[in-house]
């Protein structure tokens, strides 16, 4: 940039499409305060009735896992097949199980 102005901080935006659903990450935007972040999210991400609720989180406040750790974090769950109902062999005549 040619000027010395500070950038507006980045916020991550999560929208609940309708009650009963989780908030879902939809993207980011720039704002200087919480109120502005909500207003910008409303104007940017809900122009077509996409939401009934907005969460805005400062991007710098989010802690994320690292893809390099994916093996360590997520591989150990792979062989735990006994956690899934299909692992168990129940005769067809037994109902509602």
């Amino acid at each position: 940039m040619t000027d010395n102005s500070q950038d507006w901080p980045l916020y991550e935006i999560f929208i609940r499409a309708r009650s009963g659903l989780d908030h879902k990450h939809v993207g980011s935007l720039h704002a200087t305060d919480a109120r502005m972040a909500i207003e910008h999210a409303r104007d940017l991400y809900t122009r077509r009735q996409e939401g009934v609720s907005i969460w805005a989180v400062r991007s710098s406040d989010i802690v994320a896992s690292d893809p390099a750790d994916a093996d360590t974090l997520f591989e150990p769950a792979r062989d735990k097949v006994y956690r899934h109902p299909t692992f168990y062999d129940i005769p067809d005549e037994v109902k509602t199980l």
């Binding site: 980045l10 991550e12 990450h25 989180v57 991007s59 989010i62 994320a64 690292d66 893809p67």
Partner: peptide, 14 residues
């Protein structure tokens, strides 16, 4: 990096 990237999606170690 922290300043500029999405916190969710910031550059990893790789």
């Amino acid at each position: 990096v922290d300043l500029y990237t999405q916190g969710l999606d910031s550059l990893g170690k790789d």
